[in-house]
């Protein structure tokens, strides 16, 4: 109940303000541009290759959108003083974090659904399976969930939304670049670092329409881990 109350309030804040719409519009514009320039503009290709490239671009814009949508979650509450409303309410810290996560995921899901016209174009004019589209979108949401959790953690650390976005962007970037690092390290670090790679190790399967359970477990673990860290940061403020 408390989680939904907070989620509803945050969703309303996204929809009442300009920033939510601006982020969605910018990401949709970018998605459309990339889809036209690269996925469609590379000459003759199989439909599944075009769809694969769409998911490749969409993964990047989804991660960017998640960081931008979550940068305000806690930072804005603190700068406007409304954090006190939550701190003086009989609500557990994990409920506050979960509510904000749900709201951000709601917006991200809306944004993701709005991109469906592009796979629909491929589906109508080419030959791709519904399963490929569905698995690709599941992957986008799983990747978006992990990035949203990272964004919430960044927002819980800083009062400034810009600082929160920069921090979250750096963490996401570092996790993406893990695949590069894994290539220059020795075993057993190679496998460990490669497993941490946010995109390369886990998302490429979704792009190709393959459902890999271990990738879902990975994204679930990153989501849970960073939500837990956000909760701990929130709890820690009472004692600091």
């Amino acid at each position: 109940m408390n989680v939904l109350l907070i989620a509803r309030r945050d969703l309303a804040a996204y929809l009442h303000g300009v920033s939510g719409y601006a982020i969605i519009a910018a990401v949709l514009f970018l998605d459309g541009l990339l889809f036209n320039a690269f996925a469609l503009g590379r000459g003759a290709q199989y439909s599944h290759e075009v769809l694969q490239q769409f998911f490749y671009f969409a993964s990047g814009t989804t991660m960017t959108a998640a960081v931008l949508l979550t940068m305000r979650s806690f930072a804005e509450e603190r700068t406007q003083g409304t954090q006190l409303l939550l701190d003086t309410a009989p609500i557990a810290d994990w409920q506050i974090v979960a509510g904000k996560y749900l709201a951000a995921m709601g917006m991200l899901t809306l944004l993701t659904l709005l991109t469906m016209y592009m796979p629909a174009l491929i589906f109508v004019n080419g030959k791709v399976s519904v399963a490929h589209v569905a698995v690709g979108y599941l992957g986008l949401l799983a990747l978006g969930s992990a990035t949203t959790a990272i964004g919430l953690f960044g927002s819980s650390l800083f009062r400034s939304q810009v600082a929160a976005a920069i921090f979250s962007g750096v963490v996401v970037g570092a996790l993406i670049l893990c695949w590069l690092l894994s290539e220059i390290t020795d075993p057993p670090f190679t496998d460990v670092i490669a497993y941490m790679a946010l995109y390369d190790k886990h998302f490429t399967a979704f792009e190709k329409g393959r459902l890999v359970t271990s990738a879902l477990v990975y994204y679930g673990s990153v989501t849970f881990g960073f939500l837990l860290l956000s909760t701990r940061v929130h709890e820690g403020r009472r004692w600091s």
């Binding site: 309030r9 309303a12 303000g17 003083g81 409304t82 954090q83 006190l84 409303l85």
Partner: peptide
């Protein structure tokens, strides 16, 4: 508190 915590869009 001294500055009332309020969601201004509500």
């Amino acid at each position: 508190p001294e500055t009332p915590p309020q969601y201004e869009d509500m």
